[in-house]
Design a protein around this nucleic acid. Sequence first.
DNA 1: CTGTTAGCGCTTTCAA
DNA 2: TTGAAAGCGCTAACAG
Lengths: 334, 334
Amino acid sequence: MATIYDVSELAGVSLATVSRVMNKNAQVSEKTKQKVLAAMESLGYRPSAIAKGLASKHTSSVGVLISELHGPFYGMMMSEVETELRNHDVHAIIAAGHSDAAKEEDAIEFLLSRRCDALILYVESVTDEYLVKLAKKGTPIVIIGRNIPKLAKNCISLNNELGGYLASKHVLENGHRKIAYISGPLWKDDAQERLAGHKRALAEYNVKFNEKLLFEGSYQEEGGVEGLTHLLAQRANFTALLCANDEMAAGAMTAARDLGLAMPQDLSVVGFDNVAYSRYVYPKLCTINYPIREMANMAAHWVLKYVYKHNAFDIQNIFEPTLVTRDSVSKFKR
Amino acid sequence: MATIYDVSELAGVSLATVSRVMNKNAQVSEKTKQKVLAAMESLGYRPSAIAKGLASKHTSSVGVLISELHGPFYGMMMSEVETELRNHDVHAIIAAGHSDAAKEEDAIEFLLSRRCDALILYVESVTDEYLVKLAKKGTPIVIIGRNIPKLAKNCISLNNELGGYLASKHVLENGHRKIAYISGPLWKDDAQERLAGHKRALAEYNVKFNEKLLFEGSYQEEGGVEGLTHLLAQRANFTALLCANDEMAAGAMTAARDLGLAMPQDLSVVGFDNVAYSRYVYPKLCTINYPIREMANMAAHWVLKYVYKHNAFDIQNIFEPTLVTRDSVSKFKR
DNA sequence: CTGTTAGCGCTTTCAA
DNA sequence: TTGAAAGCGCTAACAG
């Protein structure tokens, strides 16, 4: 692989000059510039990002850490970040944290060791303190999906409680009173918050929260299947089911139908996230929109603005969820 | 950020010694080793992967190029590669090619500039010749989803024609004769191959291929919606619909239901890929299994074996699709 | 077992 | 406008 040295030799100029034509900024006479360009071309020269990083102390790369590389939610987030960053010639180095503290820290170590200029983190297991410490270490970080008081400026988060509330309120407004709830893993903050929102709505409508109508799911399709099966076994005759995310809603709906329930007539269902395929399940899923694209885009802009000094628009730290009404909810009858 | 030099100073040993304890291999006395470790600990030392890469000529990282960062198919592939690689302490640098030749080449340039030890490529637009040339440049490459004769050893591909054939044969066996087909973008090889398989099955059953029953879709949900709408407008009374991937099948099914068609009674549908959510659409989608996980895993093993010299199992270059029967197909009646 | 000494390929003053 | 030279943080002979 040709080096800058080979180029300088072929072009008959110094290293420095070659470097200058690569980094557009400096003044180089048109003539020598052409010589250098020609030399690069004929050698098939490709600058080493790695050597450049060593010498210049920045890598034009930002580390992106998400829980999983698959799944509609993370996929959208990652995709948006990558696109926005790449539009500005910075590259994303992506790693998965698998919702596990050790793996998340590991991944962060990895990204740091690659000397990323900044980190965009969607982490679930690592503590707030860890992140606060990390933020002090020098590499700028922006955190998606969490709101840490001491790091408020670095957080891009959703009002999950409101989302839970909106979902719940919607079925309550439709007359339902026996409402089952499949939450996410309750050690996750967002799962707790969504559930809290649900409880607030219930309280507002004077309906008592029933432990038997709560199932702690996994945030995956299978969790929805298990949840529905379990809840039905409680024989509590619920007419509406709230799921803490769309995947579980899809699983629950499939399971419900397998057991002979018609939706939305026998059972109204609401999801959460508004992932792409939620409109392709049957019935079309009523859900809560999680503006993850906008949030991911904001995170990318945060980095562009504060790290790469592009003049981006103002940063919005907190986003609001909204209700997306579709076919899976009907009025309570009888 | 502390450097190896700081560590060596604090520990009272030379650079080389510090380097030695980092790279387990060499012999270092237990005593000095502990001193070094302690120094690292107290300095919060984190070796620079970038400097290491420059000095050692390999980066313990492999570039992974896929068309999109979102979507169930790519997500699964990326996830599997990353997991397998990380299990062996090598990291994936992921980039998106967006099914566009220029962007794909760009992304490859990027990965090469980061001096990846190898490349795992899922590319759709770049030519075979380009890849053949690339393969000669030194960086080992493995190609997923294409079978290039000159690069047969580097390819991990699916027999798409067989997949199309199996899907088609299944509905033919169920008595259907008027079969509509929503293909992928026909400039993509896999779309062509799947369609070819369909035609072969038709021929085998002596049913003539009808252009009016073919719609060229986008491989996305929306393409399925458009396809179904268009096909219905042809008034050709088809009783079965083959979709070249599950996303389009999901879109088409939703559109069909919106137009009052019951499935599978009025219309049988078959997808392709067997993505995670295909079993959660209604009716559960009959599809062709694309063993993308196994293939992704194989690609990772290829790299582990040939680049990192781990002793992995034998490499399988060609994979076979299989039929997954579910509820979306029924026997043709009347 | 440990230290010395060149680099790896590039950026970046400082002079010319 | 251009060149010389000193690193960036690490690895890898080669000695000792």
